[in-house]
Design a protein around this nucleic acid. Structure first.
Lengths: 186, 186
DNA sequence: ATAATAATAGACAAATTTGTCTATTATTAT
DNA sequence: ATAATAATAGACAAATTTGTCTATTATTAT
């Protein structure tokens, strides 16, 4: 079961996969260790506890998620195409991940007020996404934004969550269609 | 810790509260028993396992949730008011529940493909909600529906999820405003 | 009143979970 | 080459988890 990379990276990769596939609480540290092919002490020297591993997971996921979505958006030059590319990102990504939904929303459902740092990571991730969509919208000439940016944000988030529930892509397509309609209204 | 009702009802009430507040996996059977003031054997005669209790919880929650939302909708007679009343239901309900979000989406984040019956309950709950919103929309004269009903559904769901993340009510207000705008377009 | 049923307290088991610690081996830097 | 550092295997502990079982008590129906 040896995997490429140093023990810390192996733990991060395996935990990232298992937390997403099975959930944070349903994944034991022993399974992570076993599938990563790494000694238990390595986990506790690099991360102090399971909770810190969970926090590291969220931080890593934030970075990777934004890297992935911006990479797709930056392939486009037209402002409208750039906004719509965020939904095309979902259309490609969600089926590839077997409609497991959003890592952050999933984690938030599992943790409580006893883990404020994790809650904070989720909140900051979503704030950043909200700002990002807002920026993409106001880059389109003649878009006053106002409530429209938040509507787009709600549709984006709704699309992720519902495609998880139905394990179908129509929520993303519907959201994208509505966004097109909204930005052609003003 | 004696609570009103027979043991089965006490377990349902306590599990319903704890699963929602703490999450399903984070809530042990012993805590449910202790807070319900009920013997362990009572749980295992009425429900065969924790998983069956989880399933009963979802079924009960489905019933109660629809009873609550339809009660609010049925106070209105004007079709447009009836559709908007669903968002007013959220505006009232979510803060009262301290923005814990949707019981079904929360549960879905915790369970995997090993619990298909629970997944099915979530799916059927959401299908029913989707149909319900569709019906409320097409009752408004001059509404062709088409994709609009699903857009409203996505905004409704997005509003629940995001108000949980931000612990603020603006997502519901934004969603409601957009729905008003959408139905006055055609 | 009495018999049948339901519920209780709580011991117990088996498995699992997070986390620590030790002795040994491998890797890296000088 | 050698010393310092990193990683390993795995025993061990303490707590927790789900679930079973027993002997006793309370409730309900006749």
């Amino acid at each position: 079961m040896a995997r490429p990379g140093n023990p810390k990276e192996k733990i991060m990769a395996t935990a990232g996969r298992l937390f997403y596939e099975q959930g944070y609480n349903a994944t034991g540290i022993n399974q992570v260790l076993e599938e990563a092919g790494v000694a238990k002490a390595s986990l506790y020297t690099h991360f102090g506890s399971k909770e810190e591993l969970g926090l590291a997971y969220l931080k890593e996921a934030r970075m990777q998620w934004f890297a992935a979505i911006t990479a797709v958006v930056e392939q486009k030059t037209d402002p409208e195409d750039r906004l719509l590319a965020t939904f095309e990102f979902l259309e490609k990504q969600l089926p590839l991940q077997h409609f497991k939904g959003c890592r952050f929303i999933n984690m938030l459902a599992e943790i409580g007020d006893a883990q404020p740092e994790m809650q904070q990571q989720v909140l900051e991730h979503k704030r950043k996404l909200r700002r990002y969509l807002h920026q993409l919208l106001i880059a389109i000439p003649g878009q006053a934004a106002a409530g429209t940016a938040d509507t787009i944000y709600l549709l984006f988030e709704g699309a992720i969550v519902e495609s998880k529930i139905y394990k179908e892509i129509w929520p993303v397509k519907t959201a994208k269609k509505t966004v097109k309609r909204l930005i052609s209204m003003d």
